[in-house]
Design a protein around this nucleic acid. Structure first.
Lengths: 194, 194
DNA sequence: CGCAACATAGACAGACCTGTATATTTTTAA
DNA sequence: TTAAAAATATACAGGTCTGTCTATGTTGCG
């Protein structure tokens, strides 16, 4: 019973549809009318579940966050028993993420770029997501290379962040491989990658 | 006479104003009416110089690109005679950029996030800008650490890109220092930093 | 001067946006 | 079965958006 009970099927359809559209086209480019049309719900159903578009945006980001960490947690766990360890699993996840046909970068970076106002709840939630993502990465580094100097952690965090943005701009998953190689350069023999 | 002659003062005011507003608030959040009000020009003046908003967006990105590279070229050149060399100048530029009060990340990353459509001229121009930015960085690395292995170049490119995004999310210029340190970790004794 | 190029104000079309109001139907659960 | 809860369709208010049209005013220059 650790599963979140679906408050309603209509609500789920709204959030899932909005997530897909916001991610592919950008938040500001997707109107309420399009969301309700593709989710096949009435406009009042949406406004009964969410008091405003901003409210929906936040719900969408929370859903995205849950899906995102579920995927990464799973991939990291899978890597735990393999050669590269948890950190290897992390980079496998990164590569898979970048290789998805619908990949369009990090939704939270994109949201911050669009929202602009750093006091907006969606912006602040995005900042918080990034913090938790960096913590996840730091844990994986610690697990796979416990003897690595502490200073490599922020370095690898920058590398990973850079790889996400670069994968979007180059429309290619290769930056995931570059990030893995760059990380291996930094960790050297303290990490037994592949 | 390497200076681009101003086609008209009104046009310059339009581009400068649009650049400031697009950068601070995002392209989609800034309407034509606001641009002409703050640039203090008539709407027809804008549409006589630019056939559409998309056309203006492209002109704005080109202006941003020119200003951006002028600044980086200058800072890199200044660094050439100092301890860290051209690469040191590059990181000084990065730190100054992040420290500006109006800093809101890389306009081209932000544009790509907002535009979403990778066939849009503004998206493609942004991709091109990134390529030239990476070339600039690669040249600085080559100049300051000629004996460094070739593989460090993409690694440092990712670090720099990551530092830009992270500086926005953390609302702090510190990632510039982290990027410099991470680069020093990679280059080691082949780069005589500070 | 006089003319052409540039800039102005302001109204307006037509589309799209968020959010609300109303009245009806379907679903759920006691 | 029946009453409450949820979802429906549809119209609409009030705002914003890009882009056009017209008619007038200003400015630079030969």
């Amino acid at each position: 019973m650790q599963d979140t009970k679906p408050k309603s099927k209509a609500r789920e359809r709204i959030v899932d549809t909005a997530l897909r559209l916001f991610y592919s086209d950008g938040i500001n480019s997707v109107g309420i009318d399009r969301i309700i049309a593709e989710a096949d719900v009435a406009k009042m159903t949406l406004y009964n579940h969410f008091k405003s578009k901003d409210d929906l945006i936040l719900a969408v980001l929370q859903r995205r966050d849950a899906i995102f960490f579920q995927f990464f947690d799973e991939q990291i766990e899978k890597g735990a028993s393999k050669k590269g360890g948890r950190l290897g699993g992390f980079f496998t996840a990164l590569k898979k993420w970048f290789s998805a046909p619908e990949f369009r970068g990090c939704m939270f970076i994109n949201t911050a770029a669009e929202i602009a106002d750093c006091n907006h709840p969606a912006f602040q939630y995005s900042v918080d997501h990034k913090k938790r993502f960096n913590d996840l990465l730091a844990d994986a580094i610690k697990a796979s290379a416990p003897d690595a100097p502490a200073q490599v952690v922020p370095a690898i965090e920058l590398i990973v962040e850079g790889s996400i943005v670069t994968a979007v701009m180059q429309h290619s998953p290769k930056p995931a491989d570059q990030a893995r190689k760059a990380t291996r350069q930094l960790l050297g023999e303290t990490w037994l990658d592949e």
